[in-house]
Design a protein around this nucleic acid. Sequence first.
DNA 1: GAATGAGTTGGAATGATTCCAACTTGCAAG
DNA 2: CTTGCAAGTTGGAATCATTCCAACTCATTC
Lengths: 150, 150
Amino acid sequence: MIQKLSEHDREKLQESLAHSGQKVTAQREIVFAVLLAKRDHPTVEDVFQRARESMPGLSLATVYNCLETFVGCGLVRQVNHERESTRYCPNLAPHAHFRDEATGHVHDIELPPEIIQSLRSILPPGFNSETIEISFHGRSQESAPRSTSN
Amino acid sequence: MIQKLSEHDREKLQESLAHSGQKVTAQREIVFAVLLAKRDHPTVEDVFQRARESMPGLSLATVYNCLETFVGCGLVRQVNHERESTRYCPNLAPHAHFRDEATGHVHDIELPPEIIQSLRSILPPGFNSETIEISFHGRSQESAPRSTSN
DNA sequence: GAATGAGTTGGAATGATTCCAACTTGCAAG
DNA sequence: CTTGCAAGTTGGAATCATTCCAACTCATTC
């Protein structure tokens, strides 16, 4: 069961939505809360399942709508990997993604500003980029058994 | 109509396929030739249309099969952008992609090795990345009218 | 020249996403 | 109030890229 939004998060939601002429609804609150509660880059289906625990009547279409709305007003980012289901991420700081091919998990990798700068600098003249997406693909030790010595 | 493969390209095809125990077929030759002929990151459907001009009986399933085979033996790369159709790219040098949101075109951006190095260096310990994908998203001046003064 | 196996084929199946028309809700104007 | 509107929600149908599958082709080997 998902916790209600903190006052702070509700305000963020309210402001971002208002900014593009939209309203806070019960469904949007829950979907947003689900995203904040477990930042494991859930798919639409994941969000749907989790949100339904708090609101059994919620429909899948609404989850799609809410997520699209959030992306539109800059509250969350989409994360695509190959042709798999789209995942969603409420981390707004500039970051890359690391996709563990063993587990399928996605991890955020912080992106230092100088890297972003140097990436921009490799664009030939005449190319203006608004967004840069970086994704690593490999294996991490997350699922490997931890050394038992500590 | 697609030109036949050069001797050099046919050899590359033959070797890469042989390397993973597969054979050169007429269909694979044509599909490969299509990729080399126009490096505009075609979709499967694009490749299908172009290849059919030379081989009208070719089936879409075969184009999917050929492209998958090529990816498997390292002859071409897949390029995904959001949830659009997968595109294919025979440029094997390390490069990023720039996606022009006005035209939908994809451009290759050369990636200097030191950038790749510095990107690898931001991964926390325990993360081993085999591949890094970088895609820019914005507008280029490709379709803007050139200055008429030169 | 029959058997084998890789490759090809067309059509059916899948699965994520989008579309749509009906329904609900909150609110503002009469 | 209560009527009407606009925004949001809903479930189911439609879409579309991709995958699956079983039948077929073809070159090779015994």
